[in-house]
Nucleic acid binder design. Structure first.
Lengths: 229, 229, 229, 229
DNA sequence: ACGTGCGGGACGCCCCGTTTGT
DNA sequence: ACAAACGGGGCGTCCCGCACGT
């Protein structure tokens, strides 16, 4: 879902590589904000792959060339680093992929279909699944602070979809006999559910089938006289 | 889903407590099969709560009163213990809650509705979610041996639902214009998706809404002249 | 030195293989003495390769198919097993290779030269060196009971060489201006010294050179009118 | 041999004790090089007494008051620590006792005799033998990295003796009909051989006799008109 | 303010030599 | 003679602070 477009993933990696390279050339000039971002991206990557609890700070450090002291200067603890990953990296991905397109959209159904259709089927994305859901499944039951931040991302997500649908209803493009909130919730649940199944089966076809079903369902939300997509 | 009935969960805990108590009284009589089961149940519980990687063998040992040597005797490593949890405990729960009822069923839709309706809304079950899905999300990308075993549970589950639906089609109770395999897959994805959302939101109402939607969808699979449920 | 002849080493291995094979065929017939011998040989091998402290009882057990209980029935502890290896296996090898030939010898110098010349240069024997010396270097400082048993093997060895030389002196074949005890001691020290150097260099040529030097020295012990060898 | 002078051994121990005491007084100021040296000396001592495989990191830690984190910071593993013991402590001892005196010597035979005569007969040194040889006998067959480092020490040792003898030959103090390399090898083999025998017998007299024999042999290497020593 | 070097301990899992109940 | 259980270490890794430069 967050991995919906390959550009995104590429962007992350390219950006990181560039930063590390830059770092290697320019020695260590004091650029606190950049150090912070480098750490955040590396932390996101490590957490995405290993989960938060099993993520190793040493791995993050080794990937960035930053020292332990610097990490603890910017983030007081592993937990704080994890929170920042949620609030900055993961929330940002969700915004870029879902909320922004929907905000500017005049046809929410078409936009949602486009977003869902843009789901990445890259092997790595299938393998590791959805970073938001991964972290939520792992940490929500264990840490209230994590849960709060993760729940906010989910809520914003659902809220963004729901209000787009409502705007669609207002202009007559979306069926009025629809609880927008419930529909948004269903969309997210099904989307995450198929992502999980595909991850476990390690099979992109599972996700492709899911996407097809979801798109079919999205189409059924249009008013009958609306243009098909 | 596995947490479908509170009886099940209670049974496990009660059983375990009883065994520990018995153990404390009767000193250590050689009962390898019981020792094995005690370890498996405690391991299931610890893995369910903390995830596999963060599960601590020492915690399991402390919870059971079993010694390190005994654990090492029955399970050669943490990984082997984890595999056994999947193959014996988790697979067993799935069988009891889904496959057995479906096998003896003459009305698969009614049975599926009953199963879904039986979903547990206990706070703890909401909090920790589905043990099968938890473990799959955590370990599938990291360990092929885990993935194989978890995929088998998922496959059996899906297969059990699909073949029940097909039997329903054969006797005219289920709509013939239905791909049974895809329907089973959709059911599982949506069920797991809602379970995840509820876990993140820590809110039983999310799951209740999901169950309602799923039941509605299940009803729509009946042939029109079939009795409603 | 003990590894002086390849027959010996082969004998051990062949014997062991045969026993294991026999064991596999005949199921486990109760033959306590054979079980004891099988354990002794496997223990010798494992101790020879890993040292006593690092030798694993489980490895010995796995190599023999014997159970732990049986081992503890025959040998009350790892230490006792080690003692038996010294007293039975290692002492026996020394007797066969050095003492028996010397006892029946009419020309001790010739016999000693033959023994030394028979030194094995097999890669494995170079690699692991002399089992008696290995064990003595490891255990003598740590365990008095080991030391006593190992010292006895060394003493018997030295005594055997010395008394052979004295018999040679009595019949005029060996120079009378020779302290037989000191000569025996020198022989053993130099022999073990070269074996150690070769083991460390992992180079058979080091040992070959040593053997050549030792043989030269042995020849110098003859009375001038004695036949050369 | 490395244990040739009691001063050396005493120095080590005294130095260590002093450091620990100092440490206790002065709290823990960051002095990484000292920490490293403290660990190396304690590791040397523990390995000398117990062998490498049986050496316990916890024992080393307890002896030094250093924590596991500090050890892990300086040495990434037990193996790396062992390698450093060989390359720094043991190689250093060899250099101090054999190579440096020989380098500055104008009369190599006299210097070698002095070195050999300086052999320590302290009970502890007899008991535990030669640290270089101990480690080589234990680890050479098992670990290539150890062997490489140990072989280098042996090679430097032999090379140092051989080139000193050759310089003696050049100035006419040492018999020209002598293969210097073989003579060095013989010296080392015999020296180590007697050290081993003495260790097994736990008897300083064995070593004293060996030293006497070796000195006699060294004298025989002089040219006949050279001054005796 | 920003960053670093060094060190601190608590666990983590595994393996080992032994004993107990049958 | 054996299966089962015992419990003490073994090494490695982890997350985290001090005390100090710049």
């Amino acid at each position: 879902m967050f991995l919906t477009t390959r550009q995104q993933a590429s962007y992350i990696l390219v950006g990181m590589q560039r930063r590390i390279a830059a770092r290697a050339e320019t020695a260590r000039l004091h650029d606190p904000e950049r150090t912070r971002q480098v750490l955040l991206q590396a932390a996101f990557r490590e957490v995405y792959r290993s989960g938060f609890q099993s993520a190793s700070l040493d791995t993050i450090l080794a990937a960035t060339g930053v020292t332990k002291g610097a990490l603890y200067y910017h983030f007081g603890s592993k937990e704080v680093l994890g929170h920042a990953v949620v609030e900055e990296v993961i929330a940002d991905i969700t915004r870029e992929k879902w909320l922004r397109p929907l905000q500017n959209s005049t046809d929410p159904i078409a936009t949602l279909i486009a977003i869902v259709r843009g789901t990445s089927f890259r092997a790595e994305d299938i393998r590791y699944g959805c970073p938001l859901n991964n972290l939520a499944q792992e940490m929500s039951p264990l840490d209230k602070d994590f849960r709060k931040r993760l729940a906010k991302v989910f809520d914003d997500w659902q809220e963004g979809v729901a209000s787009a649908l409502m705007r669609g209803q207002a202009v007559g493009m979306v069926r009025r006999d629809l609880n927008a909130g419930q529909a948004a919730s269903f969309l997210i649940a099904t989307y995450e559910g198929y992502t999980s199944l595909a991850k476990n089966a390690q099979d992109a076809n599972v996700l492709k089938l899911g996407v097809k079903n979801i798109i079919g369902w999205l189409r059924s939300l249009r008013t009958t006289n609306a243009a098909s997509n």
